[in-house]
Simulated assay, not measured.
Amino acid sequence: MHNRSAEIMEELKLVVSSKTLDALLPPLIFVVVNGAAGLTTAVIISVAAALLLSLVRALRRQPLKYAFGGLAGVLVASGFALFAGRAENYFLPRILSSAAMLAVSLVSLIAGKPLAALASHLSRGWNLDWYWRADVKPAYREVTWLWAALFLMRLVIQINLYFSADLARMAWANLLLGTPVTLTVLVISYLYGLRRLHQLGGPGAHEFAHGVQPPWEGQTRGF
Rank of each mutant, 00 (worst) to 15 (best):
Ser105Ile: 07
Val76Ala: 09
Ser108His: 02
Tyr90Phe: 12
Phe91Val: 04
Ala100Pro: 11
Ala111Ser: 11
Leu115Ser: 03
Pro93Met: 07
Pro93Lys: 08
Val104Arg: 07
Pro93Ser: 10
Pro114Arg: 00
Gly79Phe: 08
Val104Asn: 06
Met101Arg: 12
Ser98Glu: 13
Ser97Glu: 15
Val107Cys: 12
Leu75Glu: 03
Arg94Tyr: 15
Leu109Val: 06
Val104Gln: 08
Tyr90Gly: 02
Pro93Arg: 07
Val76Glu: 08
Ala111Asn: 12
Ala103Ile: 11
Ala116Met: 09
Phe83Lys: 15
Leu106His: 08
Lys113Asp: 11
Ala116Asp: 06
Val107Ala: 14
Phe68Pro: 07
Leu92Pro: 00
Gly73Thr: 01
Leu75Met: 05
Leu115Met: 08
Gly73Tyr: 02
Gly85Leu: 07
Leu106Ile: 08
Ala99Thr: 11
Asn89His: 10
Ala81Tyr: 00
Val104Met: 08
Leu115Lys: 02
Ala100Leu: 11
Ala111Cys: 13
Leu82Thr: 05
Arg94Ile: 15
Ser98Met: 12
Ala116Asn: 06
Ala99Arg: 10
Ile110Arg: 12
Val74Ala: 03
Phe80Gln: 09
Gly85His: 04
Ser97Tyr: 14
Ala99Pro: 08
Gly73Ser: 03
Gly85Cys: 08
Pro93Gly: 07
Ala111Asp: 13
Lys113Pro: 05
Phe80Asn: 09
Leu96Trp: 06
Gly70Asn: 02
Glu88Ser: 11
Leu102Ser: 04
Lys113Phe: 09
Met101Phe: 14
Ser105Leu: 05
Gly79Trp: 07
Ala99Ile: 10
